[in-house]
Design a binder for these strands. Structure first.
Lengths: 200, 200
DNA sequence: AGTAAAACATACCGACTAGTATTTTTTTGA
DNA sequence: TCAAAAAAATACTAGTCGGTATGTTTTACT
């Protein structure tokens, strides 16, 4: 039992350090050596717990990225209240709450998407499933807004969901190029304008 | 004179093959060796024409990326006609005209932004200048629409420009995860909806 | 206590990396 | 035609890469 715990802690250690290094320096250019140096363990430990670097990448996507997007962008959508306000709050609050570190390095998921989204089907599927989960949650919320007569019935929930996600991920990348939040503030004005359109 | 021409041709050769390989496999994981293998030249030729890989990266950004974005997304904005229609046409037509290759590998500029936008100030500045050029062209067009009374004066041109760019770059990345254009079509519906809002 | 298995460490492999030093080939201008 | 300069080729370095083989330590179970 103690062994299982230790094993799990080691896996979490590797996962945490991997996520951090992938986020800061990218997936392909972060070596197993660097990761294991960060964990204070050795390569032997890594290859005991993971088959190869690809398996680690998939684990980071499905365990770390998925969790992060879920907690930051999906779960807030299931709160009670005016659907449109929840939409605006979630996107705006998320952006405003990021520390400088997160603004400089962009969205970890978007980084993965752009770096290895076209590399292998396995990565594609793992990342796509997060996007689909996010998209579904948005559609559900927008549909709720429609039935509650706070959102215009004539607009396509799917289209709005996709456009919201696209713009959010896009600005997370572009913000990297700047050393202040002006571009984020402009995005927020653009977002608010967009949400006004779908109001009833 | 023939020497200058040869030199220029070699630089173009290196630039073209670099762009292609960076686009397909990323900047950091494309080695100088791979590039020079593609050019059918040797490493000696490379280091005769470029100081190092960083200088090549900056050249690709300012010569190849800038040109591509300019021709595909900026110059069309300066056409005559209804500003709003030009906006919609440019974004939609650009997306629709991409070959599968470009859909699979995303936007070359966005790839650079997400991979090395937070790596070094030199890259940041080079990429930012393209975004700024694009943003300025969009703002000019929107402002023209306002004076010509086809675009709502009360909306912020800057905010719309930023939101349009964000969403476009975002969807270019997300499309990588799919093997068909459904997500692009949904984006286009979302875009059209957005543009309706800024109509007078 | 003893043994098997799990967890981890050490040492190594061939392939690849950015960059340099040196030599050869080609072009230029007098 | 010939020497200087530019262009390109060759050979090399020290370090890094993902992965493997094998050794040692810790834990679990009887």
């Amino acid at each position: 039992m103690q062994q299982e715990l230790k094993s799990e802690l080691t896996r979490q250690n590797i996962l945490n350090e991997s996520f951090k290094l992938f986020y800061e320096n990218g997936f392909k250019t972060t070596s197993v050596d660097k990761i294991m140096k960060a964990t204070k363990l050795t390569k032997g430990a890594f290859y005991h717990h993971y088959k190869n670097k690809k398996e680690l990448g998939l684990a980071v996507i499905s365990l770390k990225l998925e969790k992060r997007v879920c907690e930051g962008m999906i779960l807030p959508l299931y709160k009670t209240g005016n659907a449109l306000e929840i939409l605006e709050d979630t996107f705006v609050e998320r952006l405003k709450s990021f520390p400088v570190y997160d603004k400089q390095h962009g969205c970890p998921m978007n980084n993965f998407i752009n770096e290895i989204g076209d590399l292998e089907i396995a990565y594609q599927m793992a990342l796509r499933s997060i996007i689909e989960e996010w998209k579904t949650a948005l559609i559900n919320l927008i549909d709720r807004g429609k039935t509650e007569k706070t959102i215009n019935e004539s607009i396509s929930s799917t289209a709005v969901a996709v456009y919201l996600i696209s713009a959010f991920e896009g600005i997370r990348g572009i913000r990297k190029l700047y050393d202040n939040d002006a571009i984020l503030d402009e995005y927020i004005v653009g977002l608010s304008l967009y949400l006004k359109q779908i109001k009833i």
